[in-house]
Amino acid sequence: MTNESQVSAEPTWPVDPNLQTETRVAWYYYVGNLTQQQIADRLGTSRVRINRLLAACRESGVVQVSINSNLSNCVALEQTLAERYGLRGAVVVPTPEDEQRLREAIGVGAGNYLNEVIAPGNTVALGWGRTLVNTWRAMRARTDHALSVVSMLGGLAHCPRLNTFEITYGFAERLGAECHYLAAPIYASSREERDLFLAHETTRYTLDKARGADVAVLTAGDLDESLVVKYALTEKNVGTLKDAGAVGDVLGHFIDADGNLVDHELNKRTVALKPDDLAAAGNVVLVAGGTSKATVTRAALVGGYIDVLVTDEAGAEKLTQDYA
């Protein structure tokens, strides 16, 4: 969030029609990641005019104002998070007033960060979560076919909306990358069946590739609304996980408040990289926000699994204040 071209969604200056247009163009370009032609098509004007409006924004200070005021707290929180949890870095985005847009806002922050760190020839390993959809949608399209995208965990045979396969495919399509799925269920029916899946040549190849990824991108799920809880677990599972001290999951593995794997049978049936395996990746990026996820996010951080956190302002404040 230190980019001088970022703008705020909620300007504090008096709004007139011209300034309103300039602000909208700046938002679409610098935060929405649209091209000048896409903005021109959306607003029914020419690309040349959009280019002039962007120049006017820079000259008038529209773009600069948000950096000096509205985002200053985000920058301070990034530094505090990095120091407190020993991170390589952090990205903090303003929390939107509309809670329904939280994942979108965090996805923009994560997408912009990944645009800068994913290099030609990299392997990108992926977890599972709705915020990751917004992440790849916010990324620049590429045609670097030397890139590889690989899933770090199995999927579901039945899922009404979103599966690990869609996440992997979405990233691969956006990056112009080759795609590697983990063709197995996220939870086997027994530990013995899990071991058979892990011993299979294709599963072993995929997980080895994910383990050595240059960049790993994942979310953390709480025990209330995560996709794992919603689509893969029963109420009984959730109850026994809470009894075991679980606060949520990382890569389908359930951890306690200190980031340790809890003693639960689900952790013995998970077909995925273990959180400890992330240590072999070059850069592990956790994309998670909101105050409701602060406990499991902190657990992932203190567990030492994460290099970079992408979150929102309210979530970051909870992580720095409640867990001082």
Rank of each mutant, 00 (worst) to 15 (best):
G176D: 05
D195K: 00
D16N: 13
K293A: 08
S151W: 06
Q100F: 00
Y231S: 02
T311N: 02
I186F: 13
S151R: 05
L102K: 03
V228E: 02
T95R: 02
R24H: 15
N115P: 02
V31L: 08
E317D: 13
G221I: 05
L175C: 03
K236C: 00
A300M: 11
A220Q: 03
D307Q: 01
V215E: 02
V63S: 01
R191T: 14
A314F: 10
K293T: 05
Q36T: 10
D276N: 12
T206V: 15
E78M: 04
T21E: 14
D249L: 11
P17H: 02
L207S: 07
G86L: 09
W27E: 06
Y85P: 03
V250G: 03
L182C: 07
T135H: 06
L19F: 12
L261G: 03
V31R: 13
H264Y: 11
V296M: 04
L251I: 11
E313Q: 15
F171D: 10
Y85L: 03
E201A: 15
A294R: 12
A82V: 08
D144I: 08
V296K: 01
V93D: 02
T135I: 07
L278Y: 09
P185A: 12
A9M: 07
P11D: 04
S226L: 01
M1K: 09
A184V: 15
N3G: 12
N73T: 14
T219K: 00
G127A: 07
N70P: 00
H200L: 00
T23R: 15
A125K: 09
A257Y: 10
E178N: 13
F171E: 11
Y205S: 11
A177I: 09
D16E: 08
Q100T: 15
S190I: 10
R52A: 14
V75T: 13
G304N: 03
V215A: 05
T45K: 15
K293E: 01
T219Q: 04
